[in-house]
Design a protein around this nucleic acid. Structure first.
Length: 202
DNA sequence: TCGCAGATATTCT
DNA sequence: GAATATCTGCGAG
């Protein structure tokens, strides 16, 4: 999969986190595991910033865990919470500026059988949740700091172009600990599943 | 549908 | 040493 022209390049990620988040809707997340390939279309994301965003891991400065958020754009930021869940983020902004986009939900496209097996046979809600999609795509902290522009193991490809009017902006989820202004910020972007499924089914 | 327990890495004191 | 976490699955109703 090297030199695949549809792989998103570094310049795509080296922008404002909210802009990258919105543009990621409709893109395909591809996971290569040996001969197997799993893929899904992104339909829900959230943007996180650095110092001025109390919901972000980077709000209290750079630590060992979040250092990848300050690094080069286009890298994976995978971390572990609640003692059992992995989360997958994509680093944005130029090197030295903290920013990331949390992938919250995918619509399974390729390798669906294997995703279901990874989810212990669950046929519903296979990848619609940040921890669920990590489990479905076999993403764990071994992929932290992985370069998503190389086109190996894990990368993103251009998918369906999404019409601006189909995108919903909503408050983020699971950040009760953050300041009010950050909880109210409309940094979560969704694609209404009904419309989008029709677009990708043909 | 709703509420809650779960189990540990990371960070703060 | 203690608190907290970008959540999920399960059991009760």
């Amino acid at each position: 999969m090297r030199n695949n022209p549809s792989i998103l390049q570094r310049s795509f990620y080296e922008r404002d986190a909210a802009s990258v988040a919105r543009d990621l809707l409709g893109k395909s997340l591809v996971r290569q595991i040996g001969a197997h390939q799993l893929a899904g279309a992104i339909n829900e994301v959230e943007a996180y910033y650095g110092a001025h965003d109390s919901a972000s891991h980077a709000s209290r400065g750079r630590t060992q865990r979040n250092s990848v958020m300050f690094g080069q754009a286009g890298m994976a930021y995978v971390y572990f919470v609640y003692g059992m869940h992995n989360m997958f983020n994509i680093v944005t902004e130029k090197e030295g500026v903290a920013g990331a986009v949390l992938i919250r939900s995918l619509i399974p496209q390729d390798g669906v059988d294997r995703m279901i097996a990874n989810r212990n046979g669950a046929r519903r809600d296979v990848a619609n949740g940040p921890a669920r999609l990590c489990k479905a795509l076999e993403i764990d902290r071994g992929l932290n700091k992985w370069d998503l522009t190389v086109g190996e193991r894990l990368w993103l490809e251009n998918g369906t172009t999404v019409a601006e009017q189909h995108i919903q902006a909503l408050p983020r989820i699971g950040i009760d600990y953050a300041e009010q202004k950050d909880r109210n910020a409309l940094l979560r972007f969704c694609l209404p599943a009904e419309k989008f499924k029709m677009q990708i089914s043909k």
